[in-house]
Every structure is written in C-alpha cells, then in structure tokens.
C-alpha cells in the first residue's frame, strides 16, 4: 500500500515533474505518534502513478496550509539530512 506524504509549495498548479530536493512530512508512519515529522529527501515527483509506477502519494499544500485537491506521486531516492544550511539573508519572519 502506498505511503502518504505532503509538502508545502508556492504554487501547486505550477508544480513540475522531475527530480527535486524537498521537505516532506510523514502522513502514514507505522507508529502514528510519528505523523507529521519532517524529512529532507531527494525524490522523483510526477502528477500521476502512470508516470511514476510504484510510487507513493504526495499531497501538495499552499504555503499557508490549504491542501491542493489532486495528489501527486513521489519516489524517494535518498535522505538529505535533518536540516537545511542556513542562508546568509536577513529575514523579517
């Protein structure tokens, strides 16, 4: 059975298929207490299972949380670690 993940993107309508680095949240872990934990992964993403056979489900969310109604597919290639390198920019938020 396919596992489910989600990720937050600027524009789900403009999300493109391919190989990307992405932060995903676990939605169907074996231990339910681990739900929503985040992983950074290198993954292939596609809009349908036909284009990515054997893949898992990837729900897209806008940056402010609303879920996009049509799920994508994801195939994790490798783990990228727990964090992102800090960028040298001044942020207001």
């Amino acid at each position: 059975m396919a596992r489910e993940y989600d990720t937050f993107v600027d524009n789900p309508d403009g999300f493109e298929a391919g190989e990307i680095d992405v932060a995903v949240r676990e939605l169907t872990p074996d231990d339910r207490r681990k739900k929503y934990l985040t992983r950074y992964v290198r993954a292939k993403v596609a809009p349908s299972e036909e284009e990515l056979p054997g893949s898992d489900i990837l729900w897209l969310r806008w940056q402010r949380g609303r879920v996009f109604p049509r799920p994508w597919r994801i195939q994790v290639i490798r783990e990228l670690g727990e964090f992102m390198p800090k960028k040298a920019v001044v942020r207001n938020q």
């Binding site: 932060a23 985040t38 992102m84």
Partner: peptide, 19 residues
C-alpha cells in the same frame, strides 16, 4: 548554522498569514 522549515500556524491575529 542550520535551519528547518517551520509553519504555517494559525496566529493571534486570527489568520494563518505567514508562509
């Protein structure tokens, strides 16, 4: 020296406004 993605979160303003 590292960061993680955080939020969004419904806030005291009454909205989930920050990305």
């Amino acid at each position: 020296d590292v960061e993680v993605e955080e939020g969004p979160f419904g806030e005291y303003t009454g909205y989930r406004s920050g990305p």
